[in-house]
């Protein structure tokens, strides 16, 4: 068991029901996110992934149970601003989260809201833009950027608040392969540098990059495990209308034809390694 100080977000039997709805969007979610951990969340459409993201960022207050961020209860109004600073949320459509007509001004928006002195705002803008590789585009208007660049800009806008954790709600679903790769590289760099990352995605090959994967269905947390363990559960994934990673699916096809492969083949690398071993 990790000690309490190593936990960044604690979800204690969290329930959430949207006002006016009969069904709980989240039911009895018990989980935790450790410091510097990279977690991905998968699940069918409508399984409660976005709700979970908003609950973790303290934007929605639980209907039952509680959420602690860095030890602070999200339901307490006096800790709201600090929770906002500690947990950044990036949403699916970058167009709707960029607030300024110039790249650097957009990144500056967060630090300006904190009332930091101009020199500090400037430094944070520099750092955040460098972290996502957009330093050369600082004076461009956001609507002239590509999808991948816009989403990296949205991430920079959150990073400028120096959060402990960044939660991303399907940040790549509107992007082309190149844009997706750019965003994913940024996330991997972030995770390496000690920022906690929670990535909601329906690209299984992306989800497999994480340390742990959460599987949601109908508001319940069905699975909380390492990628290798989850992506071997093909029956379960298929029943939910999901897939495994491409390599996992290939292993499944082979198994159906009578070649059960050893467990734990999740990535292209795993697959190539295995085939080299048996075919050479």
């Amino acid at each position: 068991m990790p000690g309490p100080s190593s936990l960044l977000i604690e979800l204690e039997s969290v329930y959430y029901t949207y006002p006016g709805s009969k069904f709980a969007a989240l039911q009895d979610i018990c989980a935790h996110v450790g410091r510097a951990e990279f977690i991905s969340v998968i699940g069918p459409n409508g399984s409660g992934k976005s709700t979970l993201a908003r609950v973790m960022a303290g934007l929605l207050l639980t209907s039952g149970g509680r959420v602690l961020v860095n030890g602070l209860d999200t339901s307490r109004p006096e800790s709201r601003q600090e929770i906002r600073r500690n947990v950044g949320l990036v949403m699916q459509n970058p167009d709707n989260q960029l607030v300024a007509a110039v790249v650097e001004e957009d990144v500056a928006f967060g630090p300006e809201n904190l009332g930091l002195p101009s020199a500090e705002v400037f430094r944070r803008v520099e750092e955040a833009l460098a972290a996502v590789g957009l330093s050369d585009m600082r004076s461009r208007p956001p609507h002239m950027l590509s999808g991948g660049e816009k989403q990296r800009l949205a991430i920079a806008g959150v990073l400028a608040l120096k959060p402990l954790c960044v939660v991303l709600d399907e940040p790549t679903s509107m992007l082309d392969p190149l844009g997706r790769q750019e965003v994913l590289q940024v996330l991997e760099r972030l995770a390496e540098s000690g920022t906690t990352v929670v990535l909601i995605t329906h690209h299984m090959d992306e989800a497999a990059c994480a340390d742990r994967v959460w599987l949601l269905d109908k508001g319940c947390l069905l699975f909380d495990a390492e990628p290798a363990a989850l992506f071997g559960q093909l029956k379960l994934l298929h029943e939910l209308g999901l897939t495994s990673t491409s390599a996992g699916e290939l292993a499944y096809h082979l198994a159906e034809q009578g070649f059960a492969l050893p467990a734990g083949i999740v990535t292209m690398e795993d697959m190539v390694k295995f085939l080299c071993r048996v075919l050479k």
Partner: peptide, 14 residues
């Protein structure tokens, strides 16, 4: 791959 595995007489399990 299945064809290749068969000709290489790879048994299930690898």
């Amino acid at each position: 791959l299945q064809q290749m595995l068969q000709t290489n007489r790879v048994r299930p399990g690898g």
